[in-house]
Structure formats: C-alpha cells, structure tokens
Amino acid sequence: MIFVFKTSVKTKKQIKAIKPSLNQLLLPNAKWNFDLEDHDKILRIEAEEDIVLRVRHLLSIHNFHCEELD
C-alpha cells in the first residue's frame, strides 16, 4: 500500500533529523521519501501494513504536522 501525507516538514535538515526515527519505525519492509517541492511537503510511504497512526504520532513527537491525504 502507498500512504501519502501532507506535512509541515520544510527542509532537508529537518528530514535528516527525523530520518533515524522513520527508519526505525518503518524498516525493513517500507520505503519512504519526502517531496519538499510540493506545496503540501508530501511524505510518501510504501508499506505492507497500515502505518498511518504510527507515522502521525512520530511526526507529532518531532513537532511536525502530518495528515493523511486521500
């Protein structure tokens, strides 16, 4: 499944800061990337299981807004 989130992550430095946490949460069975050029600062995750609540929680811990897009 592919999950798409609108986030408040704006810089590569911010991605670098949360990268270890995302990798720990999602690997080895998921792939993820940010599109900072998109207006909504998109986070795309390809995962085999529903990870929406865990991702939203993780980003909120790091003080970022995150909402799943349809």
Rank of each mutant, 00 (worst) to 15 (best):
D50L: 09
T7R: 07
E46L: 04
C66M: 03
E37D: 12
L22M: 12
T7M: 01
D70S: 13
I61Y: 02
R54P: 04
R54C: 03
P28D: 05
H62D: 10
S8C: 05
L26E: 00
L53K: 12
C66A: 14
L36A: 06
E49F: 10
H57K: 13
Q14C: 02
I15L: 00
N63Q: 15
K13Y: 11
R56Q: 15
E67W: 07
R54V: 08
D38M: 02
R56S: 10
I18K: 02
S21R: 12
H65S: 11
S8W: 07
H57N: 14
D40A: 10
E46Y: 06
K10D: 11
N33W: 09
V55K: 10
I2E: 15
S8F: 04
D40S: 09
T11Y: 00
D40H: 14
I18G: 02
K13C: 00
I15Y: 00
L27M: 05
L26Q: 02
L43Q: 04
E67S: 12
E68K: 15
Q24Y: 10
V9S: 03
C66K: 06
I45M: 05
R56I: 15
L36V: 09
V52C: 10
A30D: 04
L59E: 02
K13F: 03
I42Y: 00
L25Y: 00
L53R: 13
L27Y: 04
D35H: 03
N29M: 03
S8R: 00
H39R: 04
I51F: 01
E49W: 08
K16F: 09
L22E: 02
I61H: 07
K16V: 11
K19S: 13
N33Y: 10
I61G: 11
H39S: 10
A17K: 15
I2L: 12
K31R: 12
K6D: 13
E46H: 10
I51T: 09
V55H: 05
N23Y: 01
D38C: 08
Q24E: 12
